[in-house]
Design a protein around this nucleic acid. Sequence first.
DNA 1: GTACTAATACGTACCGGTCAGTAACATTGT
DNA 2: ACAATGTTACTGACCGGTACGTATTAGTAC
Lengths: 198, 198
Amino acid sequence: MTKKAQKPVEAPLRAADRIRASASELFYREGIRAVGVDEVVERAGVTKPSLYRSFASKDDLAAAYLRDYDLSFWDSFERPGGKTYGNARDHVLAYIGQLSPRAVAKGYRGCGLSNAAVEYPSRDNPARQVAEAHKKVFRKRLRELAAGMGARQPNVLGDALLLLIEGVYVTGQQSEDGPAQSALAAAKLLIDASVKAG
Amino acid sequence: MTKKAQKPVEAPLRAADRIRASASELFYREGIRAVGVDEVVERAGVTKPSLYRSFASKDDLAAAYLRDYDLSFWDSFERPGGKTYGNARDHVLAYIGQLSPRAVAKGYRGCGLSNAAVEYPSRDNPARQVAEAHKKVFRKRLRELAAGMGARQPNVLGDALLLLIEGVYVTGQQSEDGPAQSALAAAKLLIDASVKAG
DNA sequence: GTACTAATACGTACCGGTCAGTAACATTGT
DNA sequence: ACAATGTTACTGACCGGTACGTATTAGTAC
């Protein structure tokens, strides 16, 4: 038994990774501006110089957090509930179907990317740039799925679904039992009205 | 001509009012956390002690800003484009119709109340409390209007419209020419699908 | 009107704390 | 040895908030 074989089993967990994990949790739950770098490193069990060896600045760390968020978002969006969907309508409805109950639950904090864009209105902020890029791709993907549903105006349906989903993100963190509970019904209404012959 | 007659004509503009105006502009444009009290008083042309004579804390000032915002919101929501509407469908569509082009324009910053709820996730924050209370009333109002349209499920339609509108607020500040441009078409689709006999 | 008083409205200067970020050096494991 | 991390201590800027002095004004007595 060599040592090398054990390495992937017991992760050494580098400081940079611990910081990423700590930052992700804190930035998401409390917001980026609300969390200081001291809090991040304390929770990560590392020290501040370690942070600045891996990240140029807090803004840079925030951007890294959002890039991680983007990755895990696409995981959950493309395989909602762990399943894959060939049918575009089923796919979108499955995503909204698993999102909606989470959004009306207690500690829900919405979309980290949308939240970051609210926190940083200035276009040249690195974190915001990640958020903007993500949202552009998300919009494109939803329009694509809308086309796959056979919508008469796929761009309108795609945008409508995006507005609905963003509405779920933001209202979900405003109150429990909020309007997000109607998101699935609203999406069905929207899709069926867009696909039907008119 | 007595002095008393001139007083209401030429407003002296008290420090507290100048601070409210300054805070409203800065908090809305840049976010509450991003703006320091020094910046608020500097722009107001007053000094810091004047702020703390009228407001107990920055949080208190932020809450006052949101109360002002709430008031002007209802002005614009109940009389979209300066007109009053007897018909609920026309009313809601008129609001979205004037909101949508603003939301796809350059410096749009969404809803100050929703933004504040994103900035302050903690429930006991005074600013967030104003935002939460507002959103509760807004939801109720939209459900009421949905009922006025004769929707089969007025609560679902009201919630759906709220999700749509909140989606406009948040995506409008993520990019120009974003999905908010499809909001009016989406709302019509939603309303018609909800009202039709099924 | 004038003179004194009292309250109101405001400014100057400062406080302690926290923020992001860094320099210099010690320690560890491979 | 060397690469990654910890330790300690520090910086300068900025944060929200305040103690205290000063000007302006209103009211009142004469």
